[in-house]
Amino acid sequence: MEALKQELKEKIIAVLNLEDVQPSDISNTDALFGDGLGLDSIDALELIVLLDKDYGIKLTDPKEGKNIFQSIDTMAAYVEANRTK
């Protein structure tokens, strides 16, 4: 699980082009949206595509995203439970 969390941090930084942010700067419990990393709705779309492309997870209900993308912890748990690749 720790390896997956590290992988997710690296992918988020790459996909969202977060210059000057290191994986170590993102805590597993930090909020990804709002006060934490400060991501917005366009970033959410990028993360949905990331889940589909890299883990074979298709999110159909946007409300699901709110819970899944709360933090690295919640995202990793969801990926672990639902990944098809």
């Binding site: 082009n17 366009i42 779309l45 990028e46 595509v49 589909d52 492309k53």
Partner: peptide
């Protein structure tokens, strides 16, 4: 590269 799948919004916008 992705065979017309997985298109992300940022570069399009």
């Amino acid at each position: 590269d992705n065979n017309e799948q997985f298109l992300t919004p940022t570069s399009f916008i």
